[in-house]
Amino acid sequence: MNILVLIKQTFDTEEKITLQNGKICEDGVNFIINPYDEYAIEEALKLRDLHGGEVTVITIGPERSENALRTALAMGADKAIIVDSEDQELDEHSISKVLAAVIKGRKYDLILGGNMAVDYGSGQVGPRLAEELDIPQITTITYIEVNGNQVIIERDVEGDKELVESSLPVLATAQQGLNEPRYPSLPGIMRAKKKPIERLEIDDFDFEDDIDAKTVVTETYFPPKKDAGRILIGEIKDQVSELANLLRSEAKVL
C-alpha cells in the first residue's frame, strides 16, 4: 500500500520563543519534526513493512525543512517531496490547497499526519485536505489496522476511546500513544542520502481556486509575566491550612 505522510518542521519544544520586529525569531533555533508527525511517520513505516508498498513524506516549508525530510528518510521513508514556501504568506487554507494539488494524480491508499503542529496548533490541515480530496478523515488516532480495503482505527476523544471503521483511501491524524517513533539508525542515515527528494515550487501548479491566505496575523505578543509566587513556610500541617485559606480569601478560586 502507498502511504503519504504530511510533516512539518517545527521549533524544538525545549526552545524559548523570542520576538524580533514583532515576529517570532528563528535565529539559533533548533528545529525538529513536529512530534505528532513523527508518530505518523512511524506508523506509516510499520504499515509498509507489514503490507508492502512505499512511504512518501511531504512537507511545505522553507529550505531548512529539507532536514526534516532527511530525518524521515533516515527513519525509513522511501521518498520525499518538498514544496518551497519561502517568502510566501500561507495560511491553513493555502497549505491544504497546495497539498491537494501535490497529491492529486498520485496513487495513495492512506494519508497520515500529526493531529496538530506544536507551533501554531490549529490542527486544520488534515481535515481540510481530506475535504479537498473528498476522502474521509479520522483524527487523533491511537491505533490502526488495515484489512484489505478497510481500516479499523481507535481514536482518542477527550480521553474516551472510539473504534471507527472506514474504507480506503482515508486520511488519519496521529495522537500521542499511537506508537513509539524510532530513531534514525546510522545505516538509515547513510541510505537516506541516496533517496530521492522531489523539489517543487508553488508556481508549478495551476490552481482551480484562489490559494491566497484568508486569515492574517496582526500581532504577536507574550502573555504578561507572572511575579514569582510565595513559598509557604512552617510545619506542613500549618502550610496546608494556610494554603486552603489563601485559595479561598486571597486568590478566591474556591
Binding site: D91, E92, H93, S96, G121, S122, G123, Q124, V125, G126, P127, R128, L129, A130, E131, E132, Q137, T139, T140, V157, E158, D209, D210, A213, K214, T215
Partner: peptide, 23 residues
C-alpha cells in the same frame, strides 16, 4: 474547540473555502 469542533470546523471551512481561526 473540542474533539468535535476540531474535527469538523476545518472540514466545513474547506468546503466553503473559508479561512478558519482555531482555538
Amino acid at each position: 474547540h473540542t474533539a468535535i469542533g476540531k474535527d469538523l470546523a476545518p472540514r466545513i471551512a474547506a468546503r466553503y473555502d473559508l479561512g478558519l481561526i482555531s482555538d
